[in-house]
Design a binder for these strands. Sequence first.
DNA 1: AAGGCTATCATTAGCTT
DNA 2: AAAGCTAATGATAGCCT
Lengths: 206, 206
Amino acid sequence: MNPIETKKKGKGRNKIEIKRIDKEANRQVCFSKRRQGLFKKANELCTLCGAEVTIIVFSIAGKPYSFGHPSVDHVLQRFLNVPGTSEFSRSAATTSFDPLNEELAYLCKKLEEERNKSRALKVAQKALSPVSNSFLWDINLSLMGMEELTEYEKVLLEHQAIISQLARQSCCHAPVIRQIDGSSMAEVGEADYLLLQQQWQNYELA
Amino acid sequence: MNPIETKKKGKGRNKIEIKRIDKEANRQVCFSKRRQGLFKKANELCTLCGAEVTIIVFSIAGKPYSFGHPSVDHVLQRFLNVPGTSEFSRSAATTSFDPLNEELAYLCKKLEEERNKSRALKVAQKALSPVSNSFLWDINLSLMGMEELTEYEKVLLEHQAIISQLARQSCCHAPVIRQIDGSSMAEVGEADYLLLQQQWQNYELA
DNA sequence: AAGGCTATCATTAGCTT
DNA sequence: AAAGCTAATGATAGCCT
């Protein structure tokens, strides 16, 4: 037995390199199997962790497949409504200015204005440690009504967007993986209805 | 040895049922690990099969994470332009053709938000006790360093989660008093950056 | 093709620092 | 909290039908 030539048996799985599969037949089979696996994983993530997930896949042939919980549209709407998450959520027409920087500058300016408006509150801020933001924990949500909470939520989203922008600028130009909360399965084909049913059964049980 | 009680050792993986994880700490860890796994699988699908994929995930805390090859926007744009794939595809695709209206709508929306914010501020200033929430509007993000911003982001996420929960319970009309328990939900994913770097390296090679 | 099989590789739940 | 470990479970490449 040659120790170097550890020939594998014909059955079972071989380790493969993650690079484009040249042989078209193999690529198609791999695509189909792995897409199913990906959607299954996504479904598990939703069920296990209460997350909202959407996946859109275009095959090399251009055929679209999608997964979404609670629905593709729901997650997309939510994503597109987050300021700064997607460029075309507000304007696909990139004019001479950079929309992201423009948005950042705009929001900073507005925040600065708000800041100037509430001078009386500077006292409270100064009383607190300049290093620590722990005073934020003092915010008492329970004193707010729903309307106020809604407004506050908007501010949170804006601040979050700004922070993400800053994080993006200070790191690299790779697309930042962004975050806020929260699963529908809209398979363009038919193959995944079973998975969907299973998913909803899980939810009904929960 | 009781044949019925096949107790597992402390180490190693146990089989788990695919249902919501109750324990929050475990759920968070699971979310983080499985999200990374999902993105890795998606990246492999892209590389192996030449597919275009985007994934959008909202954590239970409301934090958005996204994966996209070649980019989230590219895949979303392609998807939204496919007739019938998404309910709001038509509006999203057609309105973006008019840059002036789009920009105008955006500015109007922002203006309205600012007005609401000011209104909320006034209400807060009037109604709240000396321990006021309204100093929040005074926060100047541009004065914070990354470390501070990261901390602040954690607070934002927690508040968002609480607000989301309150919103869900709003049928009660009485804002539920909940105390923040110090556990942070934020993951300004360094692990994600690694994944992204890996992703981009793969793409540069391809 | 599409689905089943299975050896092998990959992911991860629970645990430890 | 975040990162590392390990034994189990889970996914799947290559083959067969």
